[in-house]
Design a protein around this nucleic acid. Sequence first.
DNA 1: CCCTTATTCAACCGATTGGTTGACGTTTTC
DNA 2: GAAAACGTCAACCAATCGGTTGAATAAGGG
Lengths: 110, 110
Amino acid sequence: MSPKLDTVFAALADPTRRSILSMLLEDDMAVTDVAEPFDMSLAAISKHLIVLTSAGLITQEKRGRVKWCKLEPNALKEASVWMQSFGMMEGLDLDAFERFLDHELEASGD
Amino acid sequence: MSPKLDTVFAALADPTRRSILSMLLEDDMAVTDVAEPFDMSLAAISKHLIVLTSAGLITQEKRGRVKWCKLEPNALKEASVWMQSFGMMEGLDLDAFERFLDHELEASGD
DNA sequence: CCCTTATTCAACCGATTGGTTGACGTTTTC
DNA sequence: GAAAACGTCAACCAATCGGTTGAATAAGGG
């Protein structure tokens, strides 16, 4: 159905890419700095960043010779809603959860 | 980090497998019945079911010659919490969200 | 017992993935 | 303007993926 879900979940399936997302949670980062903690070539990281960009999970903006990577958390929303529509919260107070989400998502001005 | 997240997200990245999960949301199903709506060999579906089982998203129980597939929604919880702990809620009241999750996950007795 | 139904296994296939290396284009700095 | 820093591209590689087919196993039904 949604090709977007395919790419978002596929992007999240790799631990390196999830780590990158976590790092970007703190701040925007240059590609080189993203790569620094990983035991892997810069080109490999560059590819991971392309995957994340295609999935819409991050955006990249070039300023000077530095390309800045920025988390794009809204891309997680569709996937998250899909999971939620599901049993994910079985046994939880789904109504309360939904009310919470409605309220919070609205406040975030998506 | 968590190898489980790898397999869960990878399992969710395929539209056929997501469809299967949706079908199982309604009721437990035999492998043959799961395969019926898909334009694909039974063996292919069998493989998809193995992937879903490895990810813990479903369980399979053989009764007689029929193997029943059952949704295991708790497996989505870890992945879901990972996503939520995340930027999906950037700009939202994260503290309130965390309190909510703590409360609800505790209540669910995961 | 044989036949059918239910499911998996094994071998194979082409496409994709996650990594490497080395060359290349840009922008900055000296 | 040459050198360094930033990042991508292209070619390659082994491993995995999503599918096929055909044979094999297991359990019921006549």
